[in-house]
Computed example of a mutant assay.
Amino acid sequence: MKLLEERIKKDGKALGKTVLKVDSFINHQVDSEFMDALGKDFAEHFKEYGITKVFTIESSGIAPALMTAKYLDVPMVILKKQTSKILNGKVYQTRVTSFTKGTSYELTLYQDYIDQNDKVLLIDDFLANGEAAMGASRLIKESGADLTGIGILIEKSFQKGRKRLEDAGYYVYSQARVGRLDKDLIEFLPEDAPVLEGVDEQELLDK
């Protein structure tokens, strides 16, 4: 999506081989009109998929997910990050490890907000190693529902997330595919570029 690529070029900051800061318009200060445009694009892309709910993981994916849900005219569900098991209430939970932050959390979904007939579109801001998306997929699978598609704002194509998700059978649409990052360097791939093998984030940090 050229609109997102141009905004990243204008306001994004590459701090190294793995870190791309977009906090001025996506995940700290949020440009609402821009989020509306991204949500409209996701909705247009997935309009024929029979989506019944849009899911996202708190908190950076909430804005684009909400706009996507608005244009698809379906509810949005936020998967919560819990530091410990919830013992009250009927929930699905799975442990997710963030390589970037070096932390783990329990990804949590209340059973009331999904059923086996749902066709779910997962929206997230970044795709790197795919840990969060795979965690979400486990919850959706446990409920009996279908993870019909995954929409990503920014894909780090040099990491293994997209291949991991596609190997698991999931369809991924990324609005911006970053093929290479380095300090003050951001290179993009076209959406139809071949999926790269990718490397683990820790391997890049160790280089």
Results as ranks from 00 to 15, higher is better:
160 K>L: 08
162 R>Y: 07
131 E>I: 02
171 Y>E: 13
112 D>N: 12
32 S>N: 08
83 T>M: 05
40 K>R: 14
48 E>D: 15
87 L>G: 07
114 I>V: 15
197 E>Y: 05
102 G>Q: 09
154 I>K: 00
159 Q>A: 05
151 G>T: 13
197 E>M: 04
1 M>K: 08
124 D>V: 04
164 R>D: 10
75 P>N: 07
124 D>E: 15
207 K>W: 11
133 A>Q: 15
157 S>E: 12
52 T>Q: 00
50 G>R: 09
202 Q>V: 09
110 Y>G: 12
62 I>A: 00
47 K>V: 11
194 P>L: 04
201 E>H: 05
42 F>T: 09
185 L>F: 13
184 D>K: 11
58 E>R: 07
1 M>F: 10
94 T>V: 11
12 G>N: 08
68 T>A: 06
76 M>P: 05
86 I>A: 06
48 E>W: 04
2 K>C: 08
102 G>T: 08
110 Y>P: 07
132 A>R: 09
95 R>E: 14
61 G>R: 02
97 T>F: 11
133 A>F: 05
2 K>F: 06
141 K>M: 02
171 Y>V: 11
175 Q>I: 12
188 F>N: 08
54 V>A: 00
125 D>L: 03
126 F>T: 12
64 P>M: 02
173 Y>D: 08
67 M>E: 14
134 M>G: 05
140 I>D: 03
160 K>Y: 01
160 K>N: 11
48 E>I: 05
53 K>W: 03
203 E>K: 12
19 V>M: 04
112 D>L: 02
134 M>A: 11
47 K>M: 06
203 E>G: 02
49 Y>G: 08
156 K>G: 09
68 T>F: 00
73 D>I: 06
185 L>N: 13
131 E>W: 01
69 A>E: 10
137 S>N: 10
126 F>L: 12
77 V>A: 00
192 D>Q: 08
169 G>Q: 09
150 I>L: 03
84 S>H: 14
128 A>F: 03
171 Y>W: 07
138 R>I: 06
181 L>G: 03
30 V>M: 04
182 D>P: 01
182 D>M: 01
129 N>H: 08
176 A>Q: 08
156 K>W: 14
65 A>L: 01
103 T>S: 07
17 K>C: 03
180 R>K: 15
59 S>G: 07
110 Y>N: 15
206 D>H: 12
75 P>V: 10
30 V>R: 04
147 L>R: 03
4 L>M: 04
142 E>I: 09
143 S>E: 13
69 A>C: 10
135 G>C: 00
26 I>N: 00
111 Q>G: 07
97 T>K: 11
134 M>T: 14
79 L>Q: 10
